[in-house]
Computed example of a mutant assay.
Amino acid sequence: MTDPTADTADNADSADTADNADTADTVAAWRRLAGTCVLLDGFHALKHAVRFGAEVPVAVTTDRRAALALAGELAPDVRKTLAGLLTEVPEQAYRSVVPRPHPTAVAALAVRPSRVAGLATLAHVPRTAPVVVLDHPRNLGNAGAVIRLAAGFGATGVVTIGPLDPWHPTVVRGGAGLHFATAVERLTADELPAGPLFALDPEGDDIRGVKLPDDAVLAFGSERSGLSAELRARTDHLLSLPMRPQVSSYNLATSVAMTLYHWSATGYGSRP
Results as ranks from 00 to 15, higher is better:
63 D>S: 13
68 L>W: 10
70 L>N: 12
81 T>H: 10
89 V>Y: 11
62 T>A: 07
60 V>G: 00
85 L>C: 05
59 A>W: 04
74 L>R: 15
59 A>M: 08
87 T>D: 00
56 V>G: 06
64 R>L: 12
76 P>N: 12
57 P>N: 08
88 E>L: 01
53 G>K: 03
74 L>H: 15
67 A>H: 08
61 T>G: 04
81 T>L: 12
66 A>C: 01
65 R>S: 14
58 V>C: 07
87 T>F: 00
70 L>Y: 07
87 T>L: 04
55 E>C: 02
91 E>N: 06
93 A>Y: 11
74 L>A: 15
87 T>R: 15
61 T>V: 06
69 A>L: 12
66 A>Q: 13
68 L>K: 09
90 P>D: 15
64 R>W: 02
93 A>P: 10
53 G>S: 07
92 Q>L: 11
83 A>T: 12
57 P>V: 07
63 D>T: 04
57 P>K: 05
82 L>S: 03
92 Q>D: 13
62 T>L: 04
76 P>K: 12
93 A>W: 12
79 R>K: 14
66 A>S: 13
84 G>S: 09
69 A>I: 08
92 Q>S: 14
53 G>W: 03
61 T>Q: 05
73 E>C: 04
79 R>L: 10
77 D>C: 09
62 T>W: 07
92 Q>H: 13
65 R>H: 13
70 L>H: 14
90 P>K: 02
77 D>P: 09
85 L>S: 06
86 L>I: 06
86 L>T: 05
63 D>C: 08
64 R>T: 04
85 L>I: 05
88 E>Q: 15
75 A>P: 08
